[in-house]
Design a protein around this nucleic acid. Structure first.
Lengths: 239, 239
DNA sequence: CGAGCCGTTGAGGGGATTCAAGCTCAGTGG
DNA sequence: CCACTGAGCTTGAATCCCCTCAACGGCTCG
């Protein structure tokens, strides 16, 4: 049984690194677990590449995924037939929570960048939750974060003129920048799906921001962003 | 200590009706509780009027609210300074879940119509949850529903031409219609905050739909909607 | 009865879309 | 080696939808 859908998440290349040594352990679901629970190694780490699906809408998953690195978008298709991104998930976030309730996924979850994620079986979580009461509290916190991310998305990404929306998107992507200061810059059509604008409009705005020095596009859907100028441009757009 | 904020929710006028006899009991949080837990009467019913706040952003509440009747909107103020509605809550929905985590409310919750709600103390829920394991599962289900409502809102209400968005709003309000077939029709400015359009545009579209027989505005923010014609108009807008 | 809020409608302008044409660039195969 | 191809990006021109500014009418309430 594949952990992921199309294609299955690659099996771990090296020996599993123990959860105790996980780089994001403080931020993830099992932060509150003791050494003895973690020693049982309840998760399965793996990688997947851009445009690969982690979750498929309508499918009843048997795993939830902790994102260790990379960026994932959650999207759905409207009655009108066009796909709309409803939120992003990044380092430390948990996706596929519906699986814990036996519900089908409400959205597609698609990797934007190379993604390192840990698959955690629903059964496993239920077993651990019966041992460690605080785990349920942690789960609720995850749900709340997702809810807040979705609300923020609709309040900030769907509001005001197109230029402001694009600036807001950059502001949201900036904290997920690589160690070398580059961040993921979506293809123009995807920007359109995120901000509800035409891809040509997205292209024009990117060009405009490039000329202003806010943004420097790089090959392979990457860019360098000047945080200073971005903040300045946002302040100007918000008045 | 007030159950609500400004002004406090009115105290129950009559003797409390027991939870066992609650009209929405099958749909609410305590659906799975047995008679003995409910006999302790853990909730406090009450009423509040239109434009009254149930929750205030930033405030750490000590209650969650089950909506027994009426409609509540959850809204927040963007960095730009305008208020945006992020979702609606109606009969059977639970608002203020963040309180269970000790977090401040992320949004204002404001009554759109007269609202009948039951305040449930956070302490009470925690006590009951330790007795009845399924309650935590129910809580997660509530969070998931809120998440789905927020995602649907951004996918459907923030997308496409203004006319389509208004039609989608009507479609969402239709199931909450009164027994006499009338439903709550927001003031034009509020339509703007929901759909991110100018209030004049909302007004023009309402007039247009009235002329098409889709909608008949009534006094006091009410309207009668022809479900048949609405569905037809939506189908035309979605092609 | 005037004040103020809300809704409606008009006129004009601007921002975004649509349609369309070139462009770069990577991959392919002759 | 290089034309060929197709996908993605950019830019232009025309159109249109929606916003802004404005005036006016109905209604409630002090």
């Amino acid at each position: 049984m594949p952990l992921l859908l199309t294609p299955p998440m690659a099996p771990p290349r090296a020996a599993r690194s123990p959860c105790q040594a996980c780089g994001v352990r403080e931020h993830v679901l099992f932060a509150s677990l003791g050494g003895e629970q973690l020693a049982q190694q309840p998760v399965r780490p793996g990688w997947t590449g851009p445009e690969q699906a982690l979750l498929a809408r309508g499918h009843r998953g048997r795993f939830v995924y902790t994102i260790r690195s990379g960026l994932v978008r959650l999207e759905r298709v409207t009655a009108r037939g066009d796909t709309r991104v409803v939120r992003l998930a990044g380092r430390g976030d948990l996706v596929g929570l519906e699986a814990l309730l036996g519900l089908p996924h409400a959205d597609d979850a698609v990797a934007c960048t190379p993604v390192e994620a840990c698959a955690i079986a629903v059964d496993e979580i239920e077993r651990l939750a019966s041992e460690v009461g605080s785990l349920r509290q942690d789960l609720m916190l995850r749900w709340q974060r997702s809810l807040d991310a979705a609300s923020s998305w609709s309040a900030e990404m769907c509001t005001g003129p197109a230029r402001r929306r694009l600036l807001k998107l950059l502001e949201m992507l900036l904290p997920h920048a690589d160690a070398d200061g580059t961040l993921w810059l979506p293809r123009r059509e995807l920007m359109g799906a995120m901000l509800d604008i035409a891809l040509e409009t997205a292209s024009r705005l990117v060009s405009q921001l490039r000329q202003e020095g806010v943004l420097e596009p790089l090959p392979r859907q990457a860019a360098r962003v000047d945080g200073e100028r971005l903040a300045h441009a946002l302040a100007a757009a918000d008045r």
